[in-house]
Design a protein around this nucleic acid. Sequence first.
DNA 1: TTTGAATAGTTGCACAAACAACTATATGTC
DNA 2: GACATATAGTTGTTTGTGCAACTATTCAAA
Lengths: 146, 146
Amino acid sequence: MSNNQFKKGELYSFITGKASTAIARRLQKKFNMAGLNITIEQWSVLYHLWKREGISQQELCNATFRDKPSITRLVDNLEKLNLVKRVPSEHDRRINLIYLTRQAQKLQEDTMTVAEETLNEALETVPADKVDICKEVLQIVYDNLK
Amino acid sequence: MSNNQFKKGELYSFITGKASTAIARRLQKKFNMAGLNITIEQWSVLYHLWKREGISQQELCNATFRDKPSITRLVDNLEKLNLVKRVPSEHDRRINLIYLTRQAQKLQEDTMTVAEETLNEALETVPADKVDICKEVLQIVYDNLK
DNA sequence: TTTGAATAGTTGCACAAACAACTATATGTC
DNA sequence: GACATATAGTTGTTTGTGCAACTATTCAAA
């Protein structure tokens, strides 16, 4: 049985990710207004390093769904900003382990607060049970396609 | 009452748009495999021109949620690919009206089929009523932030 | 009718993504 | 140990995005 739930007119915003684009733009604006001088993409890398630092670039690729060149350049820029440091692994000289600087550690609390604020603004007036269903659907979509 | 539905661990994929990124990547791959040599972003512009051509770049900005420079360059590239044509408006010489070439008209059916296919793959196993709720939530998110 | 503000579009710059081609290191097999 | 293969990371190219600054045209008010 085909799952043909999308009439043509509705397909556009799903594919283009209108909602997540709007969230990202709002978050970026809030970062800028708060004087937090990082991009959303840089933040998304730091996000995983705050959970666990000293992981390899490849692990960052997996965590952030980005390819290796993207992570190379994000780490390049984060290094220029003095937020992370590449440390060659002792066991495997192919690997860089990525560590946070003290400056990056200080960013965590502020940026997380702004991120939560942004999501609360985004989800204002949406009942919690619908948010749950939405998250569930998006997770399935991701699993179906990955 | 705060709408604090997001625990920290869940905030990431919402902001980064994991699902819509996955959809866009899958669609791009399918375009490539079908020999349809356009990007998703170019397709999103053509999408609106197929609905109504002869609109201005500014109208394309509004329709696609992009800023003017982005549309300028997308139209540049679509013109290089011989898919659209800028025609200066007779009434207002500031305005370019964008028209489809015959080549672009031929692309419509194929790309729309692939797009619908992609969404059906993405939503396989998702019950229709949950998809509806998800769309509803994403629309509210967009409205809350725009 | 002139002047100032608004609008449409372009250009430059920094950042990011996707792909292909590349280097260096590690691993597994003969 | 030597060689093929896999893995980690880098670099180049094209495309797209967001912002600021710019040109050209239109419009409205004095």
